[in-house]
């Protein structure tokens, strides 16, 4: 029995350690590569750098204008998130409180947005933004992100509001609160954890979106981090140190964000999908 246990334990940890190495090593490799001069990358591709070489990052900020792209990406994420919450919370309130046939229909209509990929509407979106004069502007990306985010927002928040005890609403109503008042004073403050979960789940796809920036954004001042990274790869393709600094820079904020919030994160993602 003990021998069997030792064997199974060894296999167990062997598998887990191998798995962890395959996950961590490529990310480690990317970071480490960004800290080497290009020449060293070709001579010594897989180990630690001989000396810490930060020039790639300096060059990235100075030569490749990465600061602007950062600001753009952050603006897009923040504005999209705020509007998604502002628009989907009231809608979720209605869905949670009133179940008329029409409301159920709208609810399903929103839910369709959870499974249908927006990329199928690319050509029409492009045409629309061109005629509105909004293409090549981050506003177009924000609008798309909002449209994609609203279904998830409505879904997660509706679920959450349904869990709020009815007594709370009743008490507020007794005190002479109107329905919108109930929403503003009772529901909205309670929504904080749900909003946090929503924000965390939506943050990643918005930050990482590549397709729509590639189609819509052309001028340098409007580029987002993933688009700039991809184009940089073509532009400085012989300067490996620089491009891997760019890749690392594109990943760092999101990895830090994830590590800080990973607890909420798990909750949010599960709520978003499992109950569907």
């Amino acid at each position: 029995m003990p021998l069997k246990k030792v064997v199974t334990r060894t296999i167990y940890y062997g598998v887990i350690i191998f798995y962890v190495i395959t996950i961590v090593y490529p990310i480690f490799l990317m970071t480490v590569t960004s800290l080497k001069p290009t020449r060293e990358i070709f001579q010594n591709p897989y180990g630690f750098p001989e000396t810490l070489y930060l020039n790639n990052y300096v060059e990235l900020m100075v030569k490749a204008n990465f600061g602007t792209y950062f600001i753009n990406s952050i603006l897009i994420v923040l504005i999209s998130l705020l509007i998604i919450v502002m628009f989907s919370a009231p809608a979720a309130f209605v869905f949670a409180r009133y179940s008329s046939r029409l409301n159920r229909f709208f609810y399903i209509y929103f839910l369709a947005g959870l499974v249908i990929p927006i990329r199928l509407g690319t050509i029409s979106l492009l045409k629309m933004f061109v005629s509105m004069g909004l293409n090549d502007h981050i506003i177009s990306l924000i609008l798309i992100n909002i449209a994609v985010g609203i279904p998830l927002g409505v879904f997660i928040l509706t679920d959450f509001i349904k869990m709020i005890p009815r007594d709370l609403f009743d008490a507020a109503r007794m005190d002479g609160c109107s329905e919108p008042g109930v929403f503003m004073r009772i529901v909205f403050p309670l929504l904080r954890p749900a909003i946090a979960a929503l924000a965390i789940v939506i943050f990643i796809p918005i930050w990482n979106d590549f397709w729509f920036p590639l189609i819509l954004i052309k001028s340098d001042s409007m580029k987002t981090i993933p688009l700039a990274t991809a184009l940089l790869f073509g532009q400085y393709n012989t300067n490996f140190g620089l491009v891997f600094a760019a890749l690392s820079m594109a990943s760092v904020p999101i990895v830090i964000f994830y590590l800080i919030f990973s607890k909420f994160f798990t909750k949010g993602l599960l709520q978003g999908a499992i109950k569907g």
Partner: peptide, 25 residues
């Protein structure tokens, strides 16, 4: 005058879509 090249393999796609949307260089 600002030189903003695009990788060779993606140049034509990028150029065409930027011109179609009226935002080309």
């Amino acid at each position: 005058v600002k030189f903003t090249p695009v990788a060779d393999t993606e140049y034509d796609a990028q150029l065409m879509s930027s011109l179609q949307t009226g935002t080309g260089a």
